[in-house]
């Protein structure tokens, strides 16, 4: 599982607009990749945890979201969760060099079909 997620995340870092990404499993194990020292592994791990917590709180509030997007001044943080509890976090730029919707769509589709 570790190998698969790591390879997939490494591959996704080549997608235009992706600055960092990570996957957190239901066992709390987290895999992260980034293109810049701005995103330390610790900060990315915490971001993945925040996203997983958000999905859990949304569920508790009877709003089972499949996709969330945190909008910051210059960045987007996308989060998606699979039915088995694996959670994806993707950080992209917001203005100019953002991830194209079609690329995001493909990335999410792949994530949801990644074998464990």
């Amino acid at each position: 599982m570790k190998e698969q997620f790591n390879n997939w995340l490494t591959d996704k870092m080549k997608v235009n607009g992706v600055l960092a990404c990570g996957i957190r499993g239901p066992d709390r194990k987290t895999f992260t990749r980034s293109s810049s020292s701005q995103y330390s592994p610790v900060a990315l791990e915490q971001a993945c945890r925040t996203l997983a917590d958000t999905f859990q709180i949304l569920n508790a509030n009877r709003f089972p979201a499949g996709l969330i997007r945190w909008v910051y001044e210059n960045y987007f943080v996308y989060g998606s969760i699979r039915p088995d509890g694996h959670c994806l976090a993707v950080i992209t730029r917001r203005n100019g060099q953002e991830l194209q919707p079609s690329d995001l769509d493909a990335m999410l589709s792949e994530f949801h079909n990644l074998p464990v």
Binding site: F63, A65, I68, R69, W70, V71, Y72, E73
Partner: peptide, 11 residues
């Protein structure tokens, strides 16, 4: 990431 603006959630 700079200033936070909003969270959008898609069900």
């Amino acid at each position: 990431l700079g200033a936070f603006d909003r969270l959008e959630m898609e069900g």
